[in-house]
Design a protein around this nucleic acid. Structure first.
Lengths: 153, 153
DNA sequence: TGTGGTTAGTTGCGGACGCAATGTATCGAG
DNA sequence: CTCGATACATTGCGTCCGCAACTAACCACA
């Protein structure tokens, strides 16, 4: 029963870091989305394409892909529906476990990510990394690693 | 992989900073949402309540509120619809400009934010700030300010 | 004063996602 | 081998939100 009655508010440094992070991150993400849309993709599509293109055989089980994207099973089902309609991915039945469906990258999907990725990386630089010097980039990496280590424990 | 010879890919520090930021931020946001839901709110509700509670008269024009929340006009209309149904806010006609609708905080809305805010701040500490020492917090604030200054120019 | 351009807000429509329920396949205990 | 528990994927339903279209109000300028 301590500390509940009187909340410890954020001081100036803390508020600046947290609100700044929220604002900066959402702004950068919005800009990156605009860039992706020029290639006919959105951020969800891009995440699927990146994961598949880095996977052995350019294929992943639906459940593993959903976990990698922090997406619910139904959310991924519809995401893959949409991308399959556009020819970016295809479904394939697994031979070893007949419960699982594999999402596989099509040639069109490979072409789409190869077209979009350089622009996306360029955006990450222009909207984000270019504003930070090498020390700040390393400090930020350290900080985010510390936060993530805390969230899994 | 899809950098080919042309695009300048991210080096190790840059990749760690960017991917770490994405992962850490989404994880922290998800945790904060869970906390808010224990108070019957989601992150969108919380943003509305914070803005209204800090506004003079606990009232804001719909268009200003939409801009503050980075929400489209229709998105805010439905958000306020939902919150008005739950009694957290009310609509009020403006006297000086009959085009504008004011969103105003109700006593129930004030009670909701006063109940949720201490838990939310505590969550920002537990999931985020507690993993960073004072230097990292200041460095992060500097970095995010630099990024934001770049995005408005 | 009247008229065209601008601003505020809402609504129809469609897309994206989560939850709960469902069907099917697999696995483990006996 | 059988059966209950578990895992995978999909579907129905509800919610949230953006875009485009629309109405109402304001404003500038002739």
């Amino acid at each position: 029963m301590y500390g509940r009655a009187v909340a410890r508010w954020l001081d100036e440094d803390e508020m600046r870091a947290w609100r700044g992070l929220v604002e900066a991150f959402t702004a950068v993400q919005a800009q990156l989305l605009v860039d992706l849309q020029r290639h006919g993709l959105d951020d969800g599509d891009y995440g699927v394409l990146v994961n598949l293109s880095e996977a052995p055989g350019a294929a992943m089980r639906m459940c593993d892909l959903a976990a990698a994207l922090h997406l619910s099973p139904s959310g991924l089902t519809r995401r893959i529906d949409s991308m399959a309609r556009r020819g970016l991915v295809a479904r394939e039945a697994s031979t070893d476990d007949r419960r699982v469906t594999l999402a596989v990258l099509t040639p069109a999907g490979r072409a789409a990510i190869e077209a979009a990725a350089p622009d996306h990386v360029e955006g990450v630089r222009r909207y984000f990394l270019d504003h930070l010097d090498r020390d700040r980039i390393r400090h930020l990496g350290d900080a985010m690693e510390a936060v993530r280590r805390g969230s899994v424990s």
